[in-house]
Design a protein around this nucleic acid. Structure first.
Lengths: 166, 166
DNA sequence: TTATATGCAAACGCTTTGCATCACG
DNA sequence: CGTGATGCAAAGCGTTTGCATATAA
């Protein structure tokens, strides 16, 4: 997948960098772009490989440093897959939310906190804890993958559903 | 903390092992005991060190293998701390639940799924996902640590007690 | 010119594995 | 005896760091 420079998403990320006083270097722009052109979760290794494939040879360290940066700016968020592996997803910086991850293709969607906040408060009260943070992670199959697996089982086909993460 | 052999918890774990057809070897008994005498989360390294301190010198591998075993028996569960580190907690094998973890002392408590299930269903429906699993992790300060930090701030003492989650 | 950012490779920490040995059934 | 469990050390992975270099402000 060729990164499409200058999406709104990419710009948002770059602006976030500059607003925070960091340089929007070519490498960081590329990372921003790779990240923005992903609709699922991705790992540092994914970015590294995609980056190399595209054009530039970025060092591992640069990726990790960029990812740390973006994480601290809350442009991306780190999440833990059921396997225990670490992945990242892009997300809206400000509003508190959670992630719904498709275990088929890796696509991820932001989920508003909604009523969960109240439930969390209630749990804290019940246990006498002062809750500082909470994290809800949902894993399931997205509509596309569900459809794919249904038609697959109908036809006996057993090929993969879609692009996989990123 | 000296492991107190033969707690109910320890027995439960050992029975779970035997019921599943695994040998309750001395090493595994020790692990069971260490695990049972922990009321918070712990890492593999913790167990290794406590084990060594107590008596036996267990190889790293043995700890990891035992932990894998207990995880597969759902006697312990692996969880991801906000720092990204992996830890384990003991828990009831059968009922679906979540964890409330004290970021001060590491104590952890099981939290019933309760109304969350309905909320999760609702989210899945809204996004067209078939939810397969969900995980809620709560981080906060337990009553003991809250009290401790209050008396501390009252006396102007500023000693550390925790590393603070994300 | 001074602070930042980058690359590289070595260092790290955690976890797994291969293999010979040992214990249990 | 044969299978399962263990220890050890080496290998593997993902991530971080030190340091010299290159680049931006």
């Amino acid at each position: 997948m060729r990164p499409s420079i200058n999406t709104i998403q990419t710009k948002r990320i770059i602006e976030a960098l500059e607003r925070a006083g960091y340089q929007a270097t070519p490498n960081r722009r590329l990372v921003a772009d790779l990240v923005a052109s992903t609709n699922g979760h991705f790992t540092a290794a994914d970015l590294l490989e995609r980056g190399r494939r595209e054009q530039v040879k970025m060092g591992r360290a640069t990726i990790f440093r960029a990812l740390d940066l973006l994480t601290s700016l809350r442009v991306v968020e780190r999440l833990d897959l059921p396997s225990g592996a670490h992945a990242y997803v892009v997300c809206e910086p400000d509003k508190h939310h959670h992630h719904l991850v498709c275990s088929g293709c890796g696509r991820s969607e932001d989920v508003a906190d909604g009523e969960l906040g109240a439930l969390v408060d209630e749990i804290g009260r019940r246990h006498g804890y002062e809750i500082q943070s909470h994290r809800l992670e949902l894993f399931g199959t997205c509509p596309v993958c569900t459809a794919a697996s249904e038609s697959r089982s109908a036809t006996g086909d057993a090929s993969a559903e879609q692009g996989g993460p990123a």
